[in-house]
Write a protein that binds this DNA or RNA. Structure first.
Lengths: 257, 257
DNA sequence: ACCTGAACACCGTTCAAGT
DNA sequence: ACCTGAACACCGTTCAAGT
């Protein structure tokens, strides 16, 4: 995704490392990024349970001690992958929100980005869930937990914004007794559930029998129709919007990774 | 849940054990059930990553060899927990479907049961997802994989049935181009996503700010309204239905566990 | 000021020896 | 016909010794 994403190499954390020259600091950040790429690959290949710090060490050019300078436990590393995932998501969401269309179409663009992220980075996507697990949280460094929370809040605020915009321009009217919060949660649950099931349970027959290309769009349309977010799906060809999002935002970029 | 659930002790698997007396067979099944309860507890306490076969051995009265007669790897044990979870779900779903009400209310009852299961057995609930992971599937015994698939199919058919009933009695009309499959998947994704986020990311602010009691109901209502499943939520007080489900199906039973 | 890798305690899995 | 637990290869984490 780097082509529309400012390079957010983590200058934080560094549990032990102190004041050093900017150059040295950059070298350390680069090494951390390199280790995270490798870890993501190994987790993807063998699953969380089979991923070991030993394998990470043997596949990298650094020693165990150095790796433990970056991550103070295996769980802390999962936490770091979660942070990386949230940063990527946020970048993609910002980019998606530049889509030209009505407020419901902008929301679709963001959810398209979410799906794209989940499918292209299944390991990172699942890390976000793992990282919320008590076992992982207990062993993560406080710095990383704080960073995680900060990013989660940013994502939430961003989503709140999509709904506020729709309310402001009149395309969405809150029914009495329904809070904006609960609508944001509904979309989140729906798109998270759709992505999680498709990414990790794709082999299940009731999932593989679906048309992958539109499963997410269908689900979202049903939900947004239920909320009464105009224009409703029978008044607008959102399949065409879905294709336009793909074309305008996520293809034909020069330096795609 | 045992009070409305036939005791489905697993007579299958038994990788190694051959023809034995019925009594002996029962003893072995009992031991397996005992080991699963213990494993579920340990996983719940320390997370998947920190759960070890050593701890299982030390906390049980059996030797490592005996435990490896039941489960041919740590992953196979996760697979067994997934099976247990699906069996419990199916029992609860059957029970829920006896709820007296219109087709949409019956569907609500089933989803109520799903939430109840997820909240009361968070570890089992998450095991179903873990078990679909390649790393776990690769190391599970073929017997357990087959059993898993069989149960998943039963659950899917059961859900298909809820929708077919609604179509038959006219409360749900399929729009052209929309398949029953995709509606079933939408409900599943929504309720799975809602449960997974609430069970495992309850600490996230955008979730904890919700009214837990009704988050699931709100989400489902939005979705079913979007599908046009009558009566719509502004024509029927589904909060009252939700409370009736709780009262009539899931409380005041004599031997509740 | 950081990096290294030997060392230690622990874990998954097997299998020869028992009953 | 099963159960046991010692044994082995491997893993997470630390820290004294190096540069």
């Amino acid at each position: 995704m780097s082509f529309f994403c400012k390079n957010q190499s983590t200058k934080e954390s560094k549990c032990i490392i102190r004041r050093v020259s900017a150059k040295r600091q950059q070298a350390i950040a680069d090494r951390e990024a390199e280790l995270l790429v490798l870890a993501e690959q190994l987790v993807g290949e063998e699953g969380f349970a089979n991923f070991t710090m030993d394998k990470l060490t043997n596949n990298s050019s650094y020693s165990k001690g150095t790796i433990y300078n970056h991550f103070n436990s295996k769980e802390d590393l999962i936490s770091a992958l979660c942070i990386k995932s949230l940063q990527k998501e946020l970048c993609l969401f910002m980019h998606a929100a530049t889509f030209e269309g009505n407020s419901r179409e902008k929301c679709l663009a963001v959810l398209y980005a979410y799906q794209k992220h989940a499918f292209e980075n299944p390991t990172l996507f699942m890390c976000v869930l793992s990282a919320k697990t008590p076992a992982v949280m207990e062993k993560s460094s406080p710095e990383r937990l704080e960073k995680q929370e900060e990013l989660t809040k940013e994502v939430t605020q961003f989503c709140d914004g999509l709904f506020s915009d729709a309310i402001e321009d009149g395309s969405l009217v809150l029914r009495t007794g329904v809070e904006l919060n609960s609508l944001v949660f509904a979309i989140w649950a729906m798109s998270f559930g759709t992505n999680a099931l498709m990414v990790s349970a794709g082999a299940v027959e009731s999932i593989s029998r679906l048309d992958n290309r539109f499963a997410q769009l269908n689900n979202i349309n049903l939900l947004l129709d239920g909320m009464g977010w105009h224009p409703l799906s029978d008044q607008c060809d959102y399949r065409q919007t879905w294709a336009r999002i793909e074309n305008q935002l996520f293809t034909n970029n020069p330096a795609t990774l």
